[in-house]
Design a protein around this nucleic acid. Sequence first.
DNA 1: CCTACCGATCGGTAGG
DNA 2: CCTACCGATCGGTAGG
Lengths: 199, 199
Amino acid sequence: MTAAQARATVTSEAVVDTALTLFAERGYHGTALSQIAEALGIRTPSLYNHMRSKHDLLRVIVDRTTAAVLADFHEAVEDVDDPVERLRRATRVYAHRHATHRREALVVNRDTGSLEEPHRTELQQRRREHEHAIRGLIADGVEAGVFMVESPRLASFAIREMCVSVARWFSDDGPLSADQVADQYADFAVSVARGCATN
Amino acid sequence: MTAAQARATVTSEAVVDTALTLFAERGYHGTALSQIAEALGIRTPSLYNHMRSKHDLLRVIVDRTTAAVLADFHEAVEDVDDPVERLRRATRVYAHRHATHRREALVVNRDTGSLEEPHRTELQQRRREHEHAIRGLIADGVEAGVFMVESPRLASFAIREMCVSVARWFSDDGPLSADQVADQYADFAVSVARGCATN
DNA sequence: CCTACCGATCGGTAGG
DNA sequence: CCTACCGATCGGTAGG
């Protein structure tokens, strides 16, 4: 089921998925509902059988994605005690998600600002939660003497954005798999936290 | 000269500057010319005395910024031979620029895709030039035996985006100056390139 | 799922 | 620098 067909039958999921593709490509404000409808092979008003509004499509996308990021994190670090390994796993799963869910990442990072209140604040809160979690892992490692950074806050910013950026270039047709990229980025993250720049 | 005043006199630079602020805040497609005009205290059609089109405003912003990034780079590494110091200086100046030119960075990274051809391709070409330059520094260090990464390409992606992200959180009112942030990010970059994750 | 249609707003032009 | 105005398109509704 790809594009225009006679008397298409469309689901809510298909609408979200198509919105995801187009929002990622052109941005939320750069995408018209008519384009989403056309990609699904229906007329614009028919979309309203499957969604509340354009804004709600964005809200759903951002909501799901940030929830999944937090779930990933907790699953990745549970049952692991070593601070280095905890950071490695947390960053690996975060980078991995950005290779396998590129569209979601692009939309969240580009268009969260277009959310209306109270959604915007709620979502930023959830992203902050992930940032604080990563920052905590780094601070734990510093306390344990295995990491050496001046500011866990700065390091967490740098490490997280490094992982996020995978969404901007990763391709399934590229030379490296999502797993391979995630492993290397996890190494980058640990290198940053260890702080081996000064000799 | 801030907002609405009776019979304002506006310059081309003021229009670009105001566009920069609003594009950074709401995105290119999320900003109306009427909002730019209002911020300048004039009517929308009067903008056309100082610009060619909305699209051209974006083009000018992206064009200037990418040119400045390349100029920064070349000035930073000239007369430096040590590969470690070359990477340190290149990333320091890049991070520093993203702290001091936040709006420009946000617009370039968010809205370059909204440029029409041939501008879009031209500008991506210029960004690629910077990426290749950073990649080259890393490859030089690997060859010299001072850096240790599997893929200079991946490392350059990670390091560059790390620096870019400074624009997303830096504040003049924050605890760290642009210089201090730039120094720490340069350390992060060198740590990544040295590859001290595996023990 | 459709056609018909809404008010609002968009970027931009004419003409002074 | 302005007023007056353009066609196009926006997100969304009515009603079936």
